[in-house]
Design a binder for these strands. Structure first.
Lengths: 338, 338
DNA sequence: ATCGTTGGTGCAATCGTTTGCATGAGTGAT
DNA sequence: ATCACTCATGCAAACGATTGCACCAACGAT
């Protein structure tokens, strides 16, 4: 037996579908007499009526659905972010559609298109590159969207990102205070704002302390693997740094692996700092000192921003920066004198 | 300017919308002359036409959308599962709608309803309890669904779960081989099939070796916190076990914490085995010995099963069990003689 | 008694597709 | 030349809701 529709409810209640629709809708129930509302509600209950949101969406040209594109849910950085977004979305009656893109522009494009075809009311993107054609097209099409974690170089866009430069300053300051003077950096891909801004922030913080820039390298991705590959260039530099700031926690783990492979131990031979303070990073050996970003809040704020953009498309696109916080653990310590 | 619809395309190509629809659809393009198909395609390209899947879904009574309910994406067990499901779904042209329920039946019910209102073609549930009203309703409504990771006690349902009993046998055998004779268990909530089956499997494996059942306790959830709270009952038993098998990795971490708090070290004073072999569990200190479950495969198989159920609703509901594998690491070792 | 107002309801169009059926042109067999 | 078919296309009715507008009854004010 097919599920009941509005017409069935209306027939049972002895009213027109228009009246039934109004009676069932919070916003319009005031137009209908209280007795009728009651009668319609009873009929709906009796039939187990549930509104068909697809039909409603077609008519209202609003799907109450938001798409979210992330590189990879399997990367422990993202789940908290997704959860933050999901929670505020649900609170507002929206549904989340999720897709992973593996940082592949083709996949991003494809998923973006499918989501638009599904008439999502807006998009949450954690996949931005500094120059991003996928995003340019979104701007051109005037689709409401908010960038999360990463942003683009130019154009007024809505974004919620960590204060990357401030985070790097915290990291460098901590190492400086512990006595480190030769500090290296294993950065992330500079095609992303996180990679670029963190590298900049690192250099700026060094300069602020009057230190020479230490050896740096660029990891090809924000992954353990990429960190492992990039690290030797820094660890093996002529004047080996006594400390390394990594672009994020996964890269830091890669650096840790590389150090291990070179027979260097952490923090005795080299201190290492990560970025994000991912889940479980505190239980590794050694527990990683990291620049904490509230990932949940990142997602939550982005969703809220998107909702306001959807409600009022003419509202100002703004970039929100979340303040980082340093969490000191076992992977950093004073340099060994030599 | 509103995005182009089929009528616009048809007008530009000089044909009826029906013809345009057929021309653009792979399946029906054969009904239309090749020249017309070409003309319609060009018109569609020129206008940047994208099909409105909401409208299509309404007409076809198929949304090509699948809902997935999980307890909490933030729990490192789930991301790989979600990813597995997502990948096979996308491959088949379906979209994934995700929701977290925090193991709260009310939330499960609410999300289930919203998803049905959104006309999802089927549901993937990682939230099952052994007796589950939410699921009973799904059966009654004849909605295609597949359970993942956990299943229900009765009724023919489609499910993809790990072979919990076999997994526990692997764990117990390993400990036995290392010389352990007094083995305890910190189980998960027995309202779930995982909790119940693993506890059963544990006892059965002991009996198979002719061992007395060691001390056991039931954690209130599959979390570190719950493991920490339940562990003392086992660790503090009159005859302290030399090894403990935990219901999953998070519970194992809780047990580890509790042991630590009691001044016991692992694996010297007590060996600990987890279940699932979650991401990063190999990098903790000590690296956890665990019963490996292929989480990605769990999600992938469940999605495939669901797709076949959607394609043919009358097809047989079957339970697929995935074989576990033991991964031995630093948290287990021979018992210390005393 | 008349008129304007208000409140409740119904009518019908509409959102953008898909699809069963009708139609008409062209083709080949008889 | 006729008939039966096939092929390509158009027509119009859905799918299940929402909503602007029209309508009508009741009511209070003058």
């Amino acid at each position: 037996m097919a599920p009941a529709n509005l017409k069935d409810v209306a027939r049972l209640a002895g009213v027109h579908t228009a009246t039934a629709s109004r009676a069932l809708n919070e916003r319009t129930a005031g137009m209908v007499s209280p007795e009728t509302v009651e009668r319609v509600r009873e009929a709906a209950d009796a039939l187990g009526y549930r509104v068909n949101r697809v039909a409603r969406g077609l008519k209202m040209r609003r799907s109450f659905t938001v798409g979210m594109l992330i590189p990879d849910i399997t990367n422990p950085f993202f789940p908290r972010m997704v959860r933050g977004a999901e929670d505020s979305l649900h609170e507002a009656g929206f549904t989340l559609v999720l897709a992973d893109t593996d940082n592949d522009p083709d996949q991003e494009r494809r998923h973006r298109d499918v989501m638009l075809e599904r008439q999502v009311d807006g998009l949450l993107l954690a996949t931005a590159r500094r120059r991003d054609r996928v995003i340019d097209a979104l701007i051109a099409a005037e689709v409401p969207f908010v960038l999360v974690n990463r942003t683009v170089d130019r154009g007024r866009v809505a974004a919620v990102i960590p204060d990357d430069r401030a985070g790097m300053a915290l990291a460098v300051e901590h190492l400086y205070a512990q006595g480190h003077r030769r500090i290296g950096h294993v950065g992330g891909p500079t095609v992303t704002s996180s990679g670029a801004r963190r590298a900049e922030g690192f250099l700026k913080a060094l300069r602020a302390r009057g230190l020479e820039p230490g050896p740096t390298a660029e990891a090809q991705g924000f992954t353990i693997e990429a960190g492992r590959e990039a690290a030797p260039a820094v660890l093996g530099a002529a004047a080996r740094p006594s400390a390394i700031v990594a672009a994020n926690d996964l890269v830091a783990l890669g650096v840790l692996d590389a150090a291990d492979a070179m027979g260097l131990s952490c923090p005795e031979d080299v201190s290492i700092i990560g970025f994000n303070d991912m889940a479980f990073i505190d239980r590794l050996s050694p527990p990683l000192t990291s620049v904490r970003i509230d990932e949940y809040e990142l997602g939550r704020r982005a969703a809220k921003l998107l909702l306001s953009l959807i409600a009022d498309p003419s509202s100002k696109r703004k970039t929100v920066m979340l303040a980082p916080e340093l969490v000191v653990r076992g992977s950093t310590g004073p340099p060994t004198l030599d």
